[in-house]
Amino acid sequence: MSDAMLYALAGAMLAGCGTYGLLTAGGALGRILGFNILGGGVFLIFGAVARRGAGAGLAADPVPQALVITGIVVAFCATALAVALLLRLKAADGAGEEEP
């Protein structure tokens, strides 16, 4: 098994775990974590795709790497927005109530 394949499979596993978490988590925080794990899996798969560029004599195809960095920034912003929303929701709902 090539190392790109290993990373791709690991990414697929992460994406699967993340999807499961996103769909089944009871609380909003669990969903946010699920989204991040799913996103991490997708970025890892993208990294494995980049490794295929090695055939062209490069260490790796740089385009997917640039896109992954952008994707990570976007996912980080999304997480920040979701957490901010969750904090507001908790403040509005009163202490300790978790979103069902």
């Binding site: 989204f35 999304a78 927005l81 969750l86 509005a92």
Partner: peptide, 29 residues
């Protein structure tokens, strides 16, 4: 609170949608 809850649900659907879209983009690339 009702609006915040609706916004949270919207955000979760939208984020799940965008990750699925991104996975499709990765496969195309």
């Amino acid at each position: 609170p009702g609006q915040l809850r609706a916004a949270m649900t919207y955000l979760m659907f939208a984020l799940f949608g965008s990750v699925l879209y991104l996975l499709g983009v990765v496969l195309v690339y």
